[in-house]
């Protein structure tokens, strides 16, 4: 299960809406082992594409270094789908490289409603999990 604050959910959704129709992406860092996403980090989509995303390699290096310095890890890795459902695509599954992360998918295909779902992706296996949103 992913437990996440309402304020962070809102930031992820706002980022996805702002970058629509391109895919938006980022991470939410949290203390190592805590399994609680705490620090929202919006990343640039180096592909600037409606069908693909990739973290900019230098930005990723800086963000990963910051997490290392703060004893954090990427608890959530999020990206948006802008024309399809919030379910991992074949490429999402083949490139998933953080077996401990919650992969959050947001779909902005509907103007009024934003799908927000979370998955574990390890060894090519996708497992959807419950999202528990903590209201402030």
């Amino acid at each position: 299960m992913l437990t996440i604050d309402r304020a962070i959910v809102d930031q992820i959704v706002a980022h996805a809406r702002a970058d629509h129709p391109d895919e938006a992406c980022g991470v939410v860092a949290g203390a190592i082992g805590s399994d609680r996403p705490a620090r929202f980090v919006k990343m640039a989509n180096a592909e600037r594409s409606p069908t693909f995303y990739r973290f900019d390699s230098m930005e990723q290096f800086q963000v990963w270094k910051e997490m290392d310095d703060h004893d954090e890890e990427p608890v959530v890795i999020y990206h948006s789908h802008t024309a399809t459902e919030a379910y991992p695509s074949r490429t999402d599954i083949s490139y998933a490289s953080e077996p401990n992360a919650h992969y959050v998918l947001v779909s902005t295909r509907d103007d009024d409603e934003t799908e927000f779902r979370s998955y574990r992706i390890a060894d090519g296996e996708v497992t959807e999990e419950e999202v528990s949103v903590v209201e402030a």
Binding site: E47, Y53, R54, F55, H79, P88, T91, D92, Y95, S97
Partner: peptide, 10 residues
């Protein structure tokens, strides 16, 4: 030397 898997998908 630091190795990081690219974070990417579709």
């Amino acid at each position: 030397v630091t190795v990081l898997p690219a974070v990417a998908g579709g």
